[in-house]
Design a binder for these strands. Structure first.
Lengths: 205, 205
DNA sequence: CACAATTATGAGCAAATATTCAGATCTTGA
DNA sequence: TCAAGATCTGAATATTTGCTCATAATTGTG
């Protein structure tokens, strides 16, 4: 009914250590519950139960269920952005094969924790425009960066680098998600080798 | 409470034409509603409303909401399997590039109808063990087939065809899903060309 | 130790939604 | 034509679930 200015911020800042600890417990539990049951079936009561706290405590730090998911996604994006930024600060290796290896390894690392959770976040979170926008922006940044890389690298022989950049990013992200997930997760090292081979041969023409 | 032997089968077999027609209406409406609102927000009442029938009629043919989704997924899998089987009956083109083109085109076709619905199905359905198993089996079949193809084809130069087959299948499925979906869907023809190029160069070594 | 601030509790409210069922309506077959 | 079976209806009920709030327990502080 109201203009729906939904709160995303915690309603209360933790001031004691136990409060911060409770917050952590909630987030950890939420990650597991969402990963196991999906967003819709991941009820706040279930999260509280798994965290070993009461439902009331959950609502002391998160104004609603969406906010819990938002916080999880924000954390993941922050971690990923930070790792990528740090990596891109230093000099990239010359051979395109090694560049791809760096990319793939970064993606594998980012998802080693909880592939299920991440799929959930990406697929379900888009209820909030703010988060949707944020994910989209990050993706576009990566595609743009990759396109520049392809355009400027001497080994690369491609006509349509715009399409190629999108394909490369999508392939890395999605295939890593999928193939490292249950059931029957693939060996990370083998996946890395094959994926790097595929991308390298592709862009060399 | 009970051992939860949830019914998936319709509770009643249609015996008159109007009954079968009602069933179809329900499924068509459900496809649209799920695609538009997602699974959780796609309520049974909304489905009935869109189908122009009463909620009671819906429950005459489907024991619960999950069963409606299950039927939609089953149909899609059946369609996909049938199309693939028909294709693999005839002789495949010799050049590996053309084989991949056939694969990619098949996947693109399968998703042209309703990409939204399909994402929904793939993401939500895996709550039911039965359907999860079915999807897994189909996937394994395709991977196995692809591996045989890679092992037997004279153009192919790969050491680890087991990993390669999984990578190829995952890449085609996922990238097509993702890149053809909103927002900013990629041109289907360009996607096909680039993806075929990538896969071909990969397996040729 | 006393007192206030912070944190935790969980029964229960309200809204949304899945599902039922008794009765109305339609179709079929003799 | 007409009864029996099939189908449809939708208000009513059952269930789920996000969330509140009065109260209790804990912690920090002078």
């Amino acid at each position: 009914m109201t203009p729906d200015q939904r709160r995303i911020q915690p309603r209360k800042q933790p001031r004691q250590v136990r409060a911060e600890l409770t917050r952590q417990r909630i987030l950890t539990a939420a990650a597991h519950v969402f990963a196991d049951h999906g967003y819709a079936a991941g009820t706040t009561n279930r999260i509280a139960e798994r965290a070993g706290i009461s439902i009331g405590s959950l609502y002391q730090y998160f104004p609603n269920k969406d906010a819990v998911l938002a916080e999880l996604l924000t954390r993941h994006l922050d971690d990923g952005s930070a790792a990528a930024a740090e990596l891109l600060t230093g000099p990239l290796p010359g051979p395109i094969e090694e560049v791809f290896r760096v990319f793939v390894r970064l993606t594998v690392e980012a998802h080693r924790d909880d592939p299920h959770l991440l799929r959930m976040l990406i697929e379900q979170a888009p209820r909030s425009n703010e988060l949707l926008e944020r994910v989209g922006r990050l993706k576009r940044t990566m595609v743009g960066y990759t396109r520049d890389l392809l355009d400027g690298h001497p080994e690369v022989r491609l006509s349509d680098t715009a399409t190629a950049a999108r394909l490369v990013i999508a392939t890395i992200e999605l295939a890593v998600h999928d193939l490292l997930a249950e059931p029957d997760p693939i060996d990370a090292r083998r996946l890395e080798d094959e994926m790097v081979a595929m991308l390298t041969r592709y862009v060399r023409g």
